[in-house]
Design a protein around this nucleic acid. Sequence first.
DNA 1: AATAGTAGCGAGAACGTTCTCGAAAACCAA
DNA 2: TTGGTTTTCGAGAACGTTCTCGCTACTATT
Lengths: 337, 337
Amino acid sequence: MANRYVTIKDIARTLNISVATVSRALRDTYDVSDNTRKLVLAAAEKMNYRPNFNATGLVKRTTHKIAVIIPSITNYYFSTVITGIQSFAASNGYQVILYLTNDSPEWEARTVKELSLSSIDGVLACVTSNTNNFEHFQELIDAGLPVILFDRLVQSLKTSTVMQDDYNGACIATEHLIANGYHRIAHITGPAKLSLTEIRLKGFLDTLKRFNLNSHGVQHSGFSKEDGENDLNAIWCDTNPPDAIFAVNDRKAVGAIIGLQKKGIEIGRQVGVVGFTNDPISEIIKPALTTVAEPAFEIGKTACQLLIKHIEKPSTANQQIVLPSELIVRKSTTRNL
Amino acid sequence: MANRYVTIKDIARTLNISVATVSRALRDTYDVSDNTRKLVLAAAEKMNYRPNFNATGLVKRTTHKIAVIIPSITNYYFSTVITGIQSFAASNGYQVILYLTNDSPEWEARTVKELSLSSIDGVLACVTSNTNNFEHFQELIDAGLPVILFDRLVQSLKTSTVMQDDYNGACIATEHLIANGYHRIAHITGPAKLSLTEIRLKGFLDTLKRFNLNSHGVQHSGFSKEDGENDLNAIWCDTNPPDAIFAVNDRKAVGAIIGLQKKGIEIGRQVGVVGFTNDPISEIIKPALTTVAEPAFEIGKTACQLLIKHIEKPSTANQQIVLPSELIVRKSTTRNL
DNA sequence: AATAGTAGCGAGAACGTTCTCGAAAACCAA
DNA sequence: TTGGTTTTCGAGAACGTTCTCGCTACTATT
């Protein structure tokens, strides 16, 4: 545009030295004298010099930018993951470019296809909940770009992943219900085929089997509060209703609680409810929601750390990291309030 | 790194034409024949060519990147604003670089100072709640970079702003309380000196005066749920307690409700509570929270739109946009439940 | 047929930085 | 002194684009 910024050449001209020397001084390389280094730094400071990342990126073939591709950020889990990512990225000199897919496979595919490979160093992604075509991500990987998936994994993509412990989380949630005397347990969950759905479902079913119990119904749908309420109504039957609901996330659990309360059912005493995430809302809703806490911030931080490792040491092998989930017991699974 | 991507030169070589022609064909300029244009586009597609934004940015002095600097994203308002920003930016070919300040003035100052002016085209910012030194932003503006503030404005910075209607929002909230028979109204709010705090406080006090009422206490602190509960306890006195609480945001309102319930007070019938934001939690808490809805998505979208206008037409004058707030009445201000 | 105009393309500079190479200057040991 | 090493620096190419200029060949006009 109209204004041009101070460049390395301007510094060189005012100091009457070469651009190469200025460049060296600014980058703290060894072969420049203390004296000229000080002169250069002082001039840069005074002239308010800022490096041009387009130029450095062009010659170094590196941009110090990472792309984060994620369905949305208006929920606790994703916004916390991003906070973890941004925090680690910033303190390591990387910038975060944010892409939202609105959980739409078409948006996701377009976003990935339009990604300028040369303007990012790596990708951190959480796929949409209803894709089964991942070739756009495969193209990125084929092009040699480090890609790390979190929260939702994709079997067909050979790449590093960072996940919460979905299986164990589902197990301890189910065990907790059983231990508290709930034996007719239903599960309301996300879209089938989504890794997180499948794994939590398996943890749920395996645990039931371990205690010689049968599932009291499994309902698949989306992840919203409204989906939770609908799912509850779908699995409910007045003759033989479940006595506990295990929800795939806290928003659906909240929906289930709302649905149950509309039916005049007392949460905890009559029907236990367990969520997953540890969204702040689980503390506020009455009764407070028992839930499996995911280490969202840590997942973001770890994923970013791993990505930067892959970027700076491209030979690093793919790695699958699983971070522990933890049960947080509250009133929604207490029989006597 | 190890892998180099397909460049315009590669296309030129395989097609046996010059790089200039390839560049023209890809950019759809007029002086290239239909035939070669088709050849180039086909080759680009087949070779999986992606433009190098470092190179284009270097010559065009534009990056199609905007920086968003914001205290945090783990709350409804900010995450929704960013969704609005990202949505508009993406559909206009701009990328969003996310910077979080954790509401720390030091982090903010460092972030802004380290911003490479040449690697972004503009800035969208919401300042921290406790800064009074804004010279780092002034430097950006002085350097000619378009800067737009939202949510929190700074008198001393002469730049465009996009805001919700804080004044009117506070007025209608207070009027609503008065109309419903609450006359001993206290206000729990954010840090003093913050624009949003001051403006909402003024709306509150002006409205009281208009009805010949006195404030029943004003408490300043942070924006969290815990701050809300603390503020409530600070203004509470058993001999002459307030009969309504107007909170600067929904999280503090929720904190106040929790505090009131701990005292055994019935929300609505005994003490009315009004929040600000329309956080999803206001629908879920019992009783549901009356609140002033802010058009968060619209604020983000409008701010981004205005920024892009400033970027693409630098002569555009500064503009102050205020988007309407709207009262949403729920149970927390209903006298008979 | 001569001239002017235009469509299509190539050569080469430029953007701001880093990198490689080599040369000058300074120092040191013998 | 000599020769060698080190320190410090400059010249110029390179990164992948766009842009300006100018050239050729074709078409249109007179």
